[in-house]
């Protein structure tokens, strides 16, 4: 029966894992890319549109896992949306096949400003193992300006979450740059 199980879950401890901490250096670098007006507009949440630009679907499996109960990206204000018109982030996977290039460019054209472009997975970084084939371009950066790269084949849900959290951190009010330890 469903209801007793739901009730039990309501009073039990959540199954969700602890949050990862994004690396400071990455956050700092991203914050420097962001203008104050964009920071105010984005706030503490991000709407994400995933664009598969020709992946093997391994990256999609891990993005979906990140949306599941154990990683629960929505607790941080990270939400996958159905249209690029609603998105703050294009999370692009795959080497960008020549057959997908125009679709990716048109998706970007539909996305309002400001827009983060994240290249997720080794293929998206530079074409990965498919680099040099007649069928692919060499990664997302060969088509669009990339703000953040999340390597891995495929990147684990934790790595993806860490990357997206560093975008959120970068959107926070700028902190004074930490002075290097003497």
């Amino acid at each position: 029966m469903l209801w007793p199980r739901l009730g039990k879950r309501l009073f039990g401890r959540p199954v969700t894992d602890a949050a990862p901490a994004p690396p400071d250096a990455v956050v700092q670098a991203l914050a420097e890319r962001l203008e104050a007006t964009a920071r105010a507009r984005l706030g503490r949440s991000l709407a994400i549109r995933e664009v598969d630009a020709g992946s093997c679907n391994g990256c999609e499996l891990e993005v979906n896992a990140m949306a599941g109960v154990l990683y629960d990206m929505e607790r941080f204000g990270l939400r996958i949306v159905a249209s690029p018109r609603h998105a703050d982030v294009l999370l692009v996977t795959g080497p960008v096949t020549r057959n997908m290039r125009e679709a990716l460019e048109r998706t970007r054209a539909c996305t309002p400003e400001p827009c983060w472009i994240v290249a997720a997975g080794d293929c998206a970084v530079d074409g990965g193992v498919f680099k040099g084939s007649y069928g692919v371009d060499s990664g997302v950066a060969s088509v669009l300006p990339v703000d953040l790269v999340i390597p891995g084949c495929p990147p684990t849900p934790l790595a993806l979450l860490e990357g997206l959290l560093s975008l959120l951190e970068a959107q926070d009010a700028p902190k004074p740059r930490a002075t290097p330890a003497a």
Binding site: G54, S55, C56, T97, F130, Y134
Partner: peptide, 25 residues
């Protein structure tokens, strides 16, 4: 056809050991 990566062209001319990473993807 949107995800066509030319995988067959990358496998031909390699040893099975080297081409296995394309089969895995």
């Amino acid at each position: 056809g949107y995800t066509h990566k030319g995988t067959l062209s990358l496998m031909v001319g390699k040893s099975p050991r080297a081409a296995a990473r394309f089969a895995a993807r």
